[in-house]
Design a protein around this nucleic acid. Structure first.
Lengths: 194, 194
DNA sequence: ATCGCTTGCCTAGGAGCGCTAGGCTACTAC
DNA sequence: GTAGTAGCCTAGCGCTCCTAGGCAAGCGAT
């Protein structure tokens, strides 16, 4: 009886691949056990429960995405960096829809604080150095950027843009143009426009 | 044996309320049946299956949200309209987290085409009349607006902004300022800035 | 008014999932 | 070699979704 050699790491990796193939909601402990040729009860030796498994996928995805973004950002500044960040983010989400969906789980504060999520925030702030924004504008800008990226990717995936024929790639690059423009010329607090 | 008087409409409404209380993922056919004092098998006379139930919640939420936005938009234009739309959207999402989450389900194209989702798109375009944007810029702007709204609300809910102490309300209004600014001065295609 | 017929509920039951308890076996450390 | 532990197992409970088939309430037509 050869042992399957299951570890939490291998489990998480296979679960992530499974998520990309069949969707996170179908990543069950039972299905995962089948993939390893093992009974489902055996997996509880490695993971706490089903939620723990999902959290592990999320942390893996966060770390992977942070690595990609970091690589894309190397040696770039200003709008170049903005576009590189955004494209790396969107590409990852499209190549790994299951991992991306898993990332949306609500992590408890301590876990979130030690996750790769903080690297995302740091890197976003690094980009903003090219735009010379002081606090608290910087925080607001970081939040707007994240909102735009996540919102676009999310709506694109769930078909929220399907009712208009225009290629989403075009809207994406124009959205980044707009984001660059507003970061370059960050408006003052509320006042009368034009 | 008095009949419970279950209809698909009442079912959907109670399901939506249940979603707001305990989260969409916990809105099960069995739990819903319990709420009506009825066996779970009986509900399949009114709904096709569990997915059908979720779709009905989503359509209800889309319609409710469209109504709210329409009311908020009445008699407003320009930035007033933008802020009214955005606030109505965000308020609804916060007051009805379960309904909002249910809305994110992937509707099949025909269902989506006859849903209240199209009213959202129309109303967004109506706002843009105040900013005088021609196609295809208009489509890009609509997509950016939706992305920003959905992304912000979504990240706010899942705790994506928690690592910075700044009140999210402040970031929200500054994000709307920024959105208004960029719509007022929609940048040209990509070229050199400033 | 009563005979159907449809509507709205029921019971029974199968299959899948999450998870626990407890047992056996292969490997590892001494 | 022996002790201990790591890694798997079976058994079994409770929950979910869903189907099949039965019975009764209330309706319309005669």
């Amino acid at each position: 009886m050869a042992r399957a050699g299951v570890t939490a790491e291998r489990l998480t990796l296979v679960a992530a691949e499974l998520a990309d193939e069949v969707g996170v909601e179908n990543v069950t402990v039972a299905a995962l056990a089948r993939h390893f040729g093992v009974k489902d009860a055996s997996l509880y030796f490695h993971i706490k429960n089903a939620r723990d498994l999902r959290v592990r996928i999320a942390l893996l995805a966060l770390a992977e995405l942070a690595d990609r973004v970091a690589a894309a950002l190397a040696g770039r500044a200003g709008k170049d960096a903005l576009v590189a960040f955004a494209d790396a983010y969107r590409d990852y989400a499209r190549q790994h829809p299951g991992r991306y969906a898993a990332m949306q789980i609500d992590l408890d504060p301590e876990t979130a604080a030690t996750s790769a999520g903080v690297r995302h925030a740091e890197m976003t702030r690094a980009i903003l150095r090219g735009y010379r924004l002081a606090e608290p504008d910087q925080t607001d800008a970081v939040r707007m950027m994240h909102s735009t990226f996540h919102g676009f990717v999310s709506l694109e995936k769930t078909g929220g843009f399907r009712h208009t024929p225009r290629p989403t790639d075009d809207s994406w690059s124009r959205t980044l143009d707009a984001l660059d423009a507003v970061l370059t010329n960050w408006p003052p607090r509320s006042g009368a426009a034009a």
